[in-house]
């Protein structure tokens, strides 16, 4: 038998490293760290388990935990708060991030370098460290309160830490670089001759920004929004530390249900709702980005 007869096209492809084979290791890792735990999560959240002394006696599909969650008003307020926080964070990051990206676009070599360093440096430090830094700044004896008191503007410390505002400030600061990076990627590819053409055709700087730069940056804004929304909607560290344990969002709720209450089924259902609503949010952002792109693209002659 000749070697070619032994090697079918399948083996050939395997040996030549074409097709999906190079991706196999990553797929295996993903299956282990993502798909299997997700299956466990689903089975925990959507089944009734009768066990005795740690031995499972029976397990069957059930919507009991989901029904319980949906009829609990705490779930509704918590998820409403989470969505509100994530949406506000995303919008503020867009609002604050775009001018930075614009500055990057029109800036010289050094402006660009400084913006890049200032954007990437925070990503390289741990989110927990950055969040603790905010405690130092926002705390009762923190930088802001001390300064305000020394200036005589206030008599006693204003409560900033452990409030909704502290969480929002922290969220925006932590997630801003994630918004700026895709925008910078768009700006790096931006053809500045388009801006010159726009000016030559009579547009002011603002006109060029509105009619050329913004429309072409819309996909970058969409990518940034999707990333910031996903991360801020599912974040745990910032609300936990800056909210002082009494700011409940979806992620901290899962944590409390599993770690403190040891209610694994409840925690699993909450996590599944979190994932599902996050997916819906992402689809919404994609649709909005499409709409915005089409709106700015309209020829409107």
């Amino acid at each position: 038998m000749t070697p070619t007869a032994l090697h079918g096209p399948f083996i050939d492809r395997l040996l030549s490293g074409r097709g999906i084979w190079p991706a196999v290791p990553a797929i295996i890792v993903l299956a282990i760290v993502a798909v299997i735990p997700f299956m466990v999560l689903l089975s925990l959240g959507f089944s009734d388990v009768v066990s005795s002394r740690g031995v499972i006696i029976s397990q069957e599909f059930s919507l009991r935990h989901l029904k319980a969650a949906l009829s609990d008003s705490l779930y509704w307020t918590t998820f409403r708060r989470s969505i509100g926080l994530a949406v506000t964070t995303t919008l503020l990051c867009m609002l604050l991030g775009f001018p930075v990206a614009y500055l990057y676009l029109i800036g010289g070599k050094w402006t660009r370098r400084i913006i890049l360093v200032l954007t990437i440096a925070p990503i390289l430090t741990s989110g927990i460290v950055r969040t603790y830094a905010w405690i130092v700044i926002l705390g009762g004896r923190g930088v802001i309160n001390t300064t305000l008191m020394q200036l005589g503007l206030i008599d006693q410390p204003v409560r900033i830490i452990n409030t909704h505002w502290a969480v929002l400030i922290g969220m925006v600061q932590i997630h801003l670089p994630i918004m700026i990076l895709p925008l910078i990627a768009v700006m790096t590819r931006h053809d500045t001759r388009l801006d010159e053409a726009s000016a030559n055709l009579g547009a002011t700087r603002l006109g060029t920004l509105r009619h050329v730069i913004l429309p072409l940056a819309t996909p970058g804004l969409g990518t940034g929004a999707a990333l910031v929304f996903t991360l801020s909607y599912t974040t745990f560290v910032v609300p936990q530390l800056l909210g002082g344990g009494n700011y409940l969002n979806a992620a901290t709720m899962v944590f409390e249900q599993v770690v403190y209450a040891l209610e694994w089924n409840k925690g699993a259902v909450t996590a599944v709702i979190l994932m599902a609503t996050c997916l819906i949010g992402l689809i919404g952002i994609a649709a909005l980005t499409n709409l915005a792109t089409r709106w700015t693209r309209a020829g409107r002659s």
Binding site: D191, L194, A197, S198, V212, T293, R297, G299, R300, S301
Partner: peptide, 13 residues
């Protein structure tokens, strides 16, 4: 340097 996001009419207008 035509605007890639605008149609021919959008570019000319």
């Amino acid at each position: 340097a035509l605007f890639p996001h605008l149609t021919v009419a959008g570019n000319v207008g």
